[in-house]
């Protein structure tokens, strides 16, 4: 079965995000005074041929741990459809 995975990778809380900080400054400059924090992440979409949804979940988790996220600085989450 073909499974579509949407994976979100973002900096862990507590890790300063240089891009987010720059974007926050730009938004404030544009007059969006209420902006308190900006975090920039990555969206990775994968189309996967898997035996079952459980199989896909296991494979995607493995991909995140091995390559897609760096556990030293990043967290990940994903949804399958």
């Amino acid at each position: 079965m073909i499974i579509n995975a949407r994976i979100n990778v973002r900096f862990k809380s507590g890790v300063l995000d240089p891009q987010g900080t720059a974007i926050k400054g730009a938004l404030k400059h544009l007059g969006f005074d209420g902006v308190e924090d900006v975090r920039v992440g990555k969206l990775i979409e994968i189309k996967l041929d898997a035996a079952s949804k459980e199989d896909a979940e296991g494979q995607i988790k493995d991909m995140c741990e091995k390559l897609l996220a760096n556990p030293v600085i990043e967290d990940y989450s994903f949804e399958l459809s």
Partner: peptide, 8 residues
């Protein structure tokens, strides 16, 4: 780990 430079 490495991140983007502070000033990008």
């Amino acid at each position: 780990a490495m991140k983007r430079n502070r000033d990008l």
